[in-house]
Amino acid sequence: MSKLDLYGTEGLLYPRDRAWHPPADTPGYKSTTLRAPKQALLSLGATKSEMSGPTFGHNSLQPLDNDLIRNFSQDGGEAVGQRLIVYGQVLDENARPVRGTLVEFWQANAGGRYRHKREGYQAVLDPNFGGCGRAITDDNGYYHFRTIKPGAYPWPNTGNDWRPAHIHFSVFGHAFAQRLITQMYFEGDPMIWQDPIALSIADPAAVEQLIARLDRHNTTPMDALAYRFDIVLRGRRSTMFENRPEGN
């Protein structure tokens, strides 16, 4: 192999399948119109600047970072709403767990209201709900957090659009080129298929990948429903003829 194929002993990442992601300009989601680059992206092939990435230890987290029901409590009380456990495994495209990586999440409250100064929805704020949290994946790539189910909320896109209930996710991976922001939807929600943002993705199979499944087995009796949302980051090429402790 030529030197351009490999960077040191690390295999390059698989190219991003841009047809699986939303294109930059999706007219149904009007905010993209002036913010979508018109020039083709320059295919770079990752260098060390993109194959490395920041690492986060447990000292990056606060004790209640994975408990949105309590991490903004103002009076000792808990956030109002349908109590949920959201969990899942972060994997790469080779189905290997991504260990020790930071996962961040943010969402609206049970009424669909975000705690944000540019929010214009009439639903009321919950004094005990901030709406953000973080977790670091364990040795098998799993994360979990406790929250309340966010409400659907209106936005002015075409005058009267409504977004399905969703939770925003930010994931780091181990290379800056794996950095990903996405949104999680809830199984069975008919509003997903009317949502200009979910439908910015052309392939319904790709949208399905964003829909968390109700997991009755992992509900907590008399406390919380459970939803499973697995996240896949870009995978690395094999370096077949080099010794790699983690194997292929």
């Binding site: 399948d17 992601h21 939303p22 961040e104 925003h168 943002i197 993705i201 964003l210 896949v232």
Partner: peptide
């Protein structure tokens, strides 16, 4: 596996 598709960070990205 396929990479999880991206979605916009949205107007309320600051919360997270």
């Amino acid at each position: 596996l396929k990479e999880t598709p991206s979605q916009t960070a949205g107007p309320y990205v600051h919360i997270g």
